[in-house]
Design a protein around this nucleic acid. Structure first.
Length: 346
DNA sequence: AAAACGGGGCT
DNA sequence: AGCCCAGTTTT
């Protein structure tokens, strides 16, 4: 049996029932693929359902406000995906008359659609023979063929793409692509796969040499940095507070947060007090500060750890740009802020 | 080529 | 603590 045949036979028996497997409508496939980038199905599924429900067509998505889309995306992370989703929807509606590109090359022109996603959409929706290479594919192929090229190197990306393109079922690329990913997710798992029941075990390099845990090879990521975040939760007599939109380049772009003071290390009440003396917003006003969380909240991102303190700042007057506390929950915020809002319950 | 970009889950 | 996830974009 061919590699492809073994895989698709396994798939026909073991595949999960998922909503995006009931359609070949490119809007839904695209939506699911963007949501599932660097995201496990369990985490992405409820977001997919929400998006389909709130934005049933690409026109609905294109006509939405970015804040509305970010709010629905809240908690999923990698927020550039949501911003690019909106930009791509507008492009499809305004430049393509609402019709999605129908091939790999043109799909690549959509913001947020790279090699993997273009191949996924092109194969699933249009039966184009374009192999997907995601984390699952890297794992299966590196183990089965014994390939030690780092998967997160440009050499590795090319090598695995070529190999996958050789293996793909030219008659049914859609099924092959979904099968190889499902196989990686369920059978050829990262940790402790049960190779005794694997249909490839008689010819798998890694199983034969007992090097499953060594593959795939990955170049180590740089160490995570530490940052100290002090969020200022203002409260006025008229039950208002301040939220500001994050600008610029870094994390959480275009999301909202309480005014932030970043520091080299954890601030004491006295130090924060001093910082607030120079705060424009508070000029000539009386205020009182208290620390909300005694222990620092450590918010862990893939490349930095945020040591966070929330400071309650009670002010005796109104503030420029204030919003009613009842409206706080309407804004898209990082989950770190969202968890505080839920806990604090204004 | 390397770094940046989230948050959840598992070991 | 370290690794992984239906990756892409920016530097």
């Amino acid at each position: 049996m061919t590699f492809s045949k073994i895989l698709t036979d396994w798939y026909s028996v073991n595949k999960r029932q998922l909503p995006w497997r009931q359609t070949t409508n490119p809007y839904y496939i695209w939506l699911s693929e963007i949501i599932l980038q660097q995201t496990q199905i369990k985490q992405g599924l409820p977001y997919y359902q929400d998006f389909v429900s709130v934005f049933p067509t690409v026109f609905d998505l294109a006509n939405a406000n970015e804040a509305e889309i970010l709010k629905l995306w809240q908690g999923l992370g990698y927020y550039s995906r949501a911003r690019n989703l909106h930009a791509a929807a507008k492009y499809v509606v305004e430049d393509l008359n609402g019709v999605f590109p129908t091939n790999y090359k043109d799909l690549l022109k959509l913001k947020g659609v790279g090699d993997y996603t273009a191949s996924a959409i092109a194969s699933i929706c249009y039966n184009e023979v374009s192999a997907v290479v995601d984390g699952n594919v890297y794992r299966l192929l590196s183990r089965y063929f014994g390939i030690y090229t780092p998967i997160n190197s440009s050499k590795g990306a090319k090598e695995f793409k070529v190999l996958a393109q050789e293996l793909i079922d030219k008659k049914d690329p859609a099924t092959f692509n979904q099968a190889v990913m499902e196989f990686g997710a369920i059978q050829c798992k990262p940790k402790s796969p049960d190779c005794t029941v694997c249909p490839f075990n008689s010819s798998c390099y890694a199983y034969g040499k007992d090097v499953i845990s060594e593959l795939p090879v990955k170049i180590k990521a740089a160490k995570v940095s530490k940052k100290y975040f002090n969020f200022l939760v203002f409260l006025t007599p008229s039950h208002t507070t301040i939220l500001e939109q994050r600008q610029g380049k870094g994390i959480w772009q275009n999301l909202y947060q309480f005014p932030l003071i970043e520091s080299e290390k954890a601030l004491t009440s006295k130090q924060l007090q001093q910082e607030l003396e120079q705060f424009e917003l508070l000029e000539g006003k009386t205020f009182e500060v208290s620390l909300y969380n005694k222990d620092e909240i450590v918010h862990k991102l893939s490349h930095q750890h945020l040591y966070t303190q929330f400071w309650i700042v009670e002010v005796d007057a109104n503030l420029a740009g204030e919003i009613p506390v009842s409206e706080v929950e309407d804004f898209p915020v990082p989950i770190l802020i969202g968890n505080f809002i839920e806990d604090f319950n204004f």
